[in-house]
């Protein structure tokens, strides 16, 4: 994901796309995230432990997915004055490491008076299934 120099409120338009960005989360990275968060469950660290729970293999923690989508938004904002004020996600399917994931977003609504922007965000797998969906809110200061 390439950084930008900063997005300003007046340049944002409904329909504008965030991404798509492709990403593969390797197992060591997923384990490191889980460990840093104190998530000790075997499903986040070990394929065998995950399979014992009926999963196809170790999975990426939900908060990691949330973080990826947050980063999609903050990268889009860049160094500008806007800030991510809220993000909410629904986990519709497990997210597996070592698979190609695609992060998507669309600006869907702009409140001119409040200088706020609503964004749809989601993570797709290679079969275009939406694994994690959500919405984010971005606020801009009175003048930027």
């Amino acid at each position: 994901m390439s950084a930008n120099t900063g997005r300003h409120f007046d340049s944002v338009a409904v329909g504008e796309s965030l991404g798509p960005h492709e990403i593969v989360i390797e197992k060591p990275r997923a384990r490191a995230f889980a460990a840093a968060c104190g998530m000790d469950s075997g499903r986040f660290h070990d394929d065998e432990a995950a399979r014992a729970e009926g999963l196809p293999g170790m999975i990426i923690p939900g908060n990691f997915s949330l973080g990826l989508l947050s980063k999609l938004v903050t990268d889009w904002l860049g160094a500008g004055p806007g800030r991510l004020t809220r993000i909410g996600t629904t986990y519709r399917a497990i997210v597996l490491p070592e698979r190609r994931l695609t992060l998507h977003g669309f600006v869907t609504h702009i409140e001119r008076e409040a200088r706020s922007v609503e964004i749809d965000v989601w993570i797709e797998n290679e079969e275009a299934e939406r694994l994690v969906i959500g919405t984010a809110s971005v606020a801009f200061p009175p003048t930027d």
């Binding site: 629904t90 669309f106 869907t108 609504h109 609503e118 749809d120 989601w122 969906i133 919405t135």
Partner: peptide, 11 residues
Amino acid sequence: IGGSDSHMVSL
């Protein structure tokens, strides 16, 4: 029939 079952604007 068909429907989006949309809970998000872009869907």
